[in-house]
Design a protein around this nucleic acid. Structure first.
Length: 352
DNA sequence: TAGGCCATCTGGTCCT
DNA sequence: AGGACCAGATGGCCTA
């Protein structure tokens, strides 16, 4: 559960607002703001406070304004402050500040969009990529780690990708809905990824094989379907049941304890069929279509069992720039001829 | 209604 | 000085 310092309607916010800290004319809205802006009708309390502080420290060439006689919320005199004195917020300064903030906000939005695009790319190389059932960010990262871990087991220990252990590794530490999704996908059919490549290279079917004939005996519920009340695929359960024996880690990270997912400190080994995967999945990011900000909600995606892409994004824009980048293609073709884990990993990570 | 997840704004910090 | 990165805060949307 996410921890939130304040409730959704913060008492503090109301207090600050009542003190007149909030701008009265709604000018906190960026001029370049998208229609997608949903919850930004007021600035955050902390931000507002910081904002005032910052304003007080800029433009030292302008006249300073004493603020010694600040009056507190209850009328009492606030203690004198040390440090640079705040300056009066002149109109010009306000405008400059706003312009700066607007630019910074735009950059930050762009940065976060880039991050989300990268996450989308990562989702696409996951075994259970689905346009309609999107993994949450955190689950994407967890699954990615598990995936790398599982593949490394395949390469290093010869573990079969059809084995229980492979699926267990993939699901380890994931939420049940995600575990179900992964299991469902693996059972349903070949993830376009490693499995095909394994088939090519090893002469064996991938997990589940084409047509969804799962060769492993784990009985996963309803293939391909989202989460809920299907059986429990909680990885730890499986592990206990099957006497799972994972790799030995030298330096277990304390951070991993909470999730129950083992850390992986060993050498990374790359996913096996990145190239095939990218070939198959070179679809435009759903996110990309939303970059144009359809009004409605900023919710471009729904997550796992309970979320679905809006139909309008099904087609999506063509030619995602990221997928046109040569860096996705070049190293991948080399992967199996001159197999160099570090190279592949770096190429894969570059894609991410 | 609570909880999960998200996008966005924001100020601070670090780096170039 | 300006940009990148980060984390805190907030409200919206959605589902159970």
């Amino acid at each position: 559960m996410m921890t939130k310092p304040f409730g959704k309607s913060s008492d503090v916010s109301e207090l600050v607002s009542s003190l007149g800290w909030l701008e009265e004319d709604g000018s906190s809205q960026d001029g370049d703001e998208s229609p997608d802006m949903r919850g930004q009708h007021s600035l955050t309390v902390g931000s507002r406070i910081h904002s005032c502080t910052e304003l007080g420290s800029e433009d030292m060439d302008e006249e300073e304004e004493e603020e010694d006689d600040e009056i507190g919320p209850n009328g009492e005199q606030a203690p004198k402050r040390r440090g640079p004195k705040k300056k009066k917020m002149t109109k010009a300064r306000q405008e400059r500040f706003r312009a700066r903030r607007v630019k910074a906000n735009a950059r930050e939005r762009s940065r976060m969009h880039g991050l989300n695009d990268a996450l989308d790319n990562l989702r696409r190389v996951m075994p259970c990529y689905s346009k309609t059932q999107k993994l949450s960010k955190i689950e994407t990262l967890r699954l990615a780690r598990n995936y790398i871990w599982a593949l490394s087991e395949v390469l290093e220990n010869g573990q079969s990708p059809e084995s229980h252990g492979f699926v267990e590794m993939l699901c380890k530490g994931l939420s049940q809905p995600t575990s179900n999704l992964v299991a469902g996908c693996l059972q349903l059919g070949p993830s376009p990824m490693i499995l095909n490549k394994l088939e090519d290279k090893c002469g064996g079917p991938g997990i589940g094989g084409v047509g969804g004939q799962a060769s492993h005996s784990l009985s996963y519920p309803s293939p391909g379907l989202p989460s809920p009340p299907y059986g429990s695929l909680e990885a730890s359960h499986l592990i206990h049941m099957k006497g799972f024996k994972g790799p030995v880690y030298d330096n277990p990270s304390p951070n991993e304890c909470s999730s129950g997912t083992p850390p992986y400190d060993g050498p990374l080994t790359p996913p096996l069929s990145i190239s095939g995967n990218f070939t198959l999945k070179q679809e435009p990011s759903p996110h990309e279509s939303e970059r144009n900000y359809t009004p409605h909600t900023g919710h471009h995606a729904h997550y796992l069992s309970s979320h679905h892409y809006p139909s309008s994004t099904a087609g999506g824009p063509q030619g995602h720039p990221l997928f046109q980048a040569s860096r996705y293609e070049l190293p991948l073709d080399v992967a199996f001829d001159s197999f160099t884990p570090s190279h592949l990993i770096s190429s894969q990570m570059g894609a991410i």
